[in-house]
Amino acid sequence: MQRKVVTPNDFTGLDQVEDRLIAFERRYNETARPFRWKFTPADLEDLMAGSSDTNRKSTTSSSPPAAATSLPHYQQPRKP
Score class of each variant (00 low, 15 high):
P64Y: 05
T60A: 13
D53A: 11
A49K: 11
E25Y: 09
D19F: 08
H73D: 03
R20K: 12
Q16S: 09
T7Y: 05
T31R: 15
P77H: 06
R26K: 15
N29H: 08
K79I: 02
F24M: 11
Q76T: 01
F35M: 07
T69Y: 00
A67F: 01
E18I: 11
S63E: 10
E25H: 07
V17R: 01
V17K: 01
S52V: 14
F35V: 03
K4M: 01
G13N: 12
L44C: 08
S62G: 14
K38T: 03
S61T: 12
D53L: 03
Y28G: 12
S51L: 06
A49Q: 12
T12Q: 10
T60S: 15
R27C: 11
P80W: 02
E18T: 12
M48D: 10
S58M: 05
R20T: 05
L44K: 05
P8D: 03
D46L: 02
R26V: 15
H73N: 06
A32S: 14
V6T: 03
V17M: 10
D43C: 07
A68R: 13
T69F: 00
D19T: 15
E45Q: 05
M1W: 14
M1A: 15
F35Y: 13
G50S: 04
F24S: 12
R26A: 15
S63V: 11
N29T: 03
T7R: 11
T69V: 07
T54W: 09
M1G: 14
R36T: 07
Q16F: 13
V6P: 00
L47S: 00
D10K: 12
L14G: 09
A49H: 13
R3D: 07
A66W: 02
Q75T: 01
A32Q: 11
T54I: 15
S52I: 09
L71M: 09
R36Y: 09
R36N: 13
R78W: 00
A66N: 02
S52N: 10
